[in-house]
Each structure stands twice: as C-alpha cells, then as structure tokens.
C-alpha cells in the first residue's frame, strides 16, 4: 500500500475511532467526502477507485461505526449514479425486491409503489431508499414509508419497510442500469466489512493474550494460543485480500466479477466463523459478556456473514458455474481478473 493510501486509512480510522457512541459521525465523514469515495465525481461523488472505497468501508467496520456507509457508498449512491438519478446528501439505503414483494404501477406521468420489503438495513435512518424492482430503480423518500423495527444479531437496524401507495414522480424512477446487481454489490460490501470486523477480533485477541496471565505467564506464551492466533491472522489476511481483489473486479466494467465476488464471499463467510470462534476461545468467559468490546466484532461477524447470501448460498452459485458448459473449477479460478 502506498503512502497516500496509508494516509487515507489513518485519517478514516482516526475519525471512526473518535466517534464511538457519539453523534455527528455521519456529518463529519460526509463533510470530508468519505461517504462517496468510489462514486464518480460527475455523478456528485468524491471520485477515487475501489482500493480507496475498500479502505474506508473496512475502517468503518473495524471501528463498528453505526452508520449506513456500506448502503450509501457501495449500494445506493453507485446505483443512483449509474441510473442517472441524483445522489442526494445524507445516509441512503437500498434493497432489491424479491418476486411479488412490491408492485410498481404506472400512474399518469409517475408511478405508484406498494408492498413490503423485509429487513432493509438502516431504512429508518436513511433519507432515501433505493428500491430495485421489475427492471427499474426507484428513489423513494423514506418519510413516505412506514417501518416495523427489527435488528440483526449485532443490534444494527434492519426494519421491514412498507410502501402504501407511495407516489413517485417520473424523475424518481429509471431503468435499472447495466452492471453488477445490487445483490452482488451488497455481498461484496458485507465481505469487505467482514474483513474489517475480523481484524478487530484478531487485534483484541492479540492484546488480550498478551495481557491475561495464567500459570504465571501471559497466555500468549502458550503454544496452543500462539497457534490459534496464527490461524486467525492467516484467515484475516486472506479475507482481506479476497475482498480487495473482488472489489477491483467489480469496479472494472470489462470483466464479469461474479466469480471473484462469490469466491471472496464464500471464503470470508467461512473464515468469519473461524475467527469469531477462536477469538472467543482466546478471551475465555469475559469475552462472552455484554460488557466486553469483543462482542461488537463477533456479533457483526455472525450477522454480516448471513446477509446477502452466506457461504452456502454463494458456494451453490459457484458450483453451478463450474458444472455449466465445460467449465471446470480450475478454468473458473484462472479466468483473467483484468
């Protein structure tokens, strides 16, 4: 990583670390332009490439920032920009409707949206909700929706959102743009976040193993604990690498990024379980308490690995690709990434 990227990482980390449990984080990172890094400048974004976008989202996840950054930076804003719709300021979210969950009907010059979308991340906190349905992309004012409160295991808001004949002007609806689907983008965003949370769990474990003394020495002096830490570090490094490679693939319009995202996702979801389990084993009973900070990392690992398809779902996607038309696993993994 070059020095500019290190600087970006340090800047982002400092901001996220400083705002724990304090309001104003969104406003500060929006002011600095971080929320729209990776979104083209001509669409109102901050510019920058996938490497920079990964650094920012990973840092937010590492610090367990309680804001819809993934939803804004990786889902809503890029989709709105690609569809030619305005990218408003403030937190955003996005959701893709499964068959029959919502109904979009033409109404004069505009449209009417009806139905309910389950467990939309940060919906109540978002200014606008981007809804993908029936080949169209809608930008919906969140104040026109009703919410039923739900949370994931980590306590992040995942409300059900109901649209009760919400009227949309023609300017709020566009054809769904070409390019990666919302689900693929979202699976990748959660993968990047998993890498950040996993590194937090590893760093906590390293610190605790160095401080906690039993039998007259730090538990890090025991070979069994060292081997756990080494295994965690290897898994975390691979998760991180996979997320970066997949993000670069997704950002490159010349390539089909499905294999890269699916592979990185499967690997990260699986590793999330390994890392969380070992982190708790190293921490002993104190790590299982509500008071201990480890919870913020491991509950996120267990939540994020399930959202937008876990390792089993994406393994099936990859497996079907290998059984299709003369592809074998080796040809799939060696397909050029650029």
């Amino acid at each position: 990583m070059n020095s500019d990227l290190h600087l970006l990482e340090n800047t982002a980390s400092d901001i996220f670390a400083g705002y724990r449990d304090r309001p104003g984080l969104w406003e500060e990172i929006e002011d600095t332009g971080l929320t729209l890094v990776g979104v083209p400048e001509k669409a109102g974004g901050s510019g920058g490439d996938s490497t920079e976008a990964v650094i920012i989202l990973r840092a937010a996840a590492y610090h367990c920032a309680e804001i819809p950054l993934a939803e804004t930076q990786w889902l809503a804003a890029p989709l709105l920009a690609a569809a030619g719709l305005p990218v408003p300021a403030g937190p955003l979210t996005a959701a893709e409707a499964a068959h029959d969950e919502v109904r979009l009907t033409a109404d004069g010059d505009g449209w009417v949206l009806d139905g309910t979308l389950p467990q939309v991340p940060w919906a109540r906190q978002a200014g606008r909700i981007v809804v993908v349905t029936d080949g169209r992309l809608c930008s919906v004012d969140a104040s026109h929706c009703t919410f039923e409160t739900h949370h994931n295991l980590a306590g992040e808001p995942r409300d059900d959102v109901t649209f009760d004949s919400v009227y949309l002007t023609a300017a709020d609806v566009a054809a769904l743009p070409e390019g990666p689907s919302l689900r693929l983008r979202a699976a990748l965003a959660r993968t990047v976040q998993l890498a950040g949370a996993a590194r937090r769990a590893l760093d906590h474990s390293l610190r605790y193993a160095g401080e906690r003394r039993q039998f007259g020495r730090p538990i890090a002096a025991f070979q069994a604990v060292q081997q756990y830490l080494a295994e965690m570090a290897g898994e975390v490094a691979l998760m991180d690498l996979g997320a970066q490679v997949a993000a670069a693939a997704l950002a490159d319009p010349r390539q089909d990024s499905e294999v890269a995202v699916a592979a990185a996702r499967v690997n990260a979801c699986r590793a999330a379980g390994v890392v969380a389990e070992l982190a708790h084993q190293i921490h002993g009973a104190i790590g299982t308490t509500h008071e201990h900070d480890l919870r913020r990392a491991t509950l996120r690992l267990w939540s994020w690995r399930e959202e937008y398809g876990n390792e089993h779902a994406w393994s099936t996607v990859l497996g079907r690709l290998t059984s299709a038309a003369s592809e074998d696993p080796w040809h799939l993994v060696t397909a050029p990434t650029t």
């Binding site: 990185a264 996702r265 099936t316 497996g319 059984s323």
Partner: peptide, 13 residues
C-alpha cells in the same frame, strides 16, 4: 455443486 463451489472459492482465494 455446493461442495464444489466451496472448494473452488477456497482455491481461488
């Protein structure tokens, strides 16, 4: 195919 996919993912990584 799910098992093949899981192994392919690890191989890719």
């Amino acid at each position: 195919s799910r098992v093949i996919g899981a192994l392919t993912a690890r191989l890719w990584t």
